[in-house]
Simulated assay, not measured.
Amino acid sequence: MSLNVLATLSGLPAEGSGFQSPTPAEFYQPLIGDGPFAITRAAVVILLSVALIGWVLVATTRRAAIVPSRAQWMTEGVYNLVRNTVARDIIGSKDFLRFVPMLFSMFVLILVNNLFGVIPPVQFPTMSRIGFPIALTLVVYVTYHYLGFRKHGFVGYFKSMVPDGLPKGILPLVVPLELLTYFVTRPLTLALRLFGNMFAGHMLLLLFITGGEYMLLHGSFGLKIVSVGSFGMAFVMTIFEALIEFLQALIFTLLAATYIAGALADEH
């Protein structure tokens, strides 16, 4: 049975005029200019998030009180999550405090930009553009390597990557794997995990929403009824995506703290 016959039976237009599924091009939305120096929607959204975060932090803490207001309590709750649960528990009470500003900034920036993916009228997760996760990963990458070289020295840092007590016979196998892990695998997976989850989640939301809209407006009576299921899945996926967006911000921050703690550890 030809595609044209299927389209006719379903009540959809034929010959390429039917539903067009979302593509990766949806994530590149230039507003001014084109090419690598274009001002894109993602760039505007992340600047908006920085301004919003700055305003919220100032507005909720400039009149801090012993008995906090609801807004101050929420800000302190997020800060304490990063300070105590992430930084202190992972890095340790001796060294954690100096890394709290970096970890808190990363967590809040990633969280807000992730949640923008399900909050109208933005509805665009900035971290679905690979450049932003890479930039944040480079900050973590440079930080933990700098700390490691400073703590152990050039040769000592490389030695600290290999667990003590290994038989010399397996060192030729373990050493390249450890070097690959520290210098390639860690940053690669840190960036791709955040990017992949935000990209895939937003693509699914686009598919359910645009598919439901198309069936409702252009489909037969049967497809108009089916479109309710598509919109229902979009709603369920939106709730699920909000949870994933929070978890990905937390996981990125947890891993950053873990790498910093590893660089500062006396033994590996």
Rank of each mutant, 00 (worst) to 15 (best):
V5G: 00
G201C: 02
S17Y: 04
F235S: 10
F195D: 03
I46A: 07
P68V: 06
F132S: 03
M106S: 13
T60S: 13
A257N: 05
E245K: 12
Q29C: 11
A135D: 02
V5A: 13
A71T: 04
N80C: 10
V140R: 01
I209N: 13
T23H: 10
F124Y: 13
A42Y: 03
H218C: 07
M1A: 13
L6S: 08
Q123I: 11
D95E: 15
T238S: 12
A135R: 01
L250D: 00
G211P: 00
N114D: 06
D34V: 07
K94C: 05
L204D: 11
V5T: 11
I91Q: 02
S49Y: 02
L138G: 07
A7F: 10
L166R: 10
S21P: 05
F199V: 00
P120H: 04
G169P: 03
L103G: 06
L264C: 07
A263Q: 03
Y259D: 12
I46F: 09
V44T: 10
E241W: 09
E245Q: 14
F116T: 12
T8W: 11
E76W: 10
A25V: 12
I225G: 03
R70F: 15
L264A: 05
T75D: 04
T210V: 00
L3Y: 10
E241G: 08
F154C: 05
W55C: 06
P36L: 06
P172Y: 01
F235V: 15
G131F: 07
T181D: 15
P22M: 04
I225L: 15
F221V: 13
H268Q: 10
H152P: 06
V5P: 00
L192R: 01
L194K: 00
L194P: 01
Q20M: 08
V122G: 05
G196D: 03
F99P: 04
S128A: 15
I170P: 10
L207F: 15
E76S: 08
L6W: 08
F96V: 03
I46L: 08
D266Q: 12
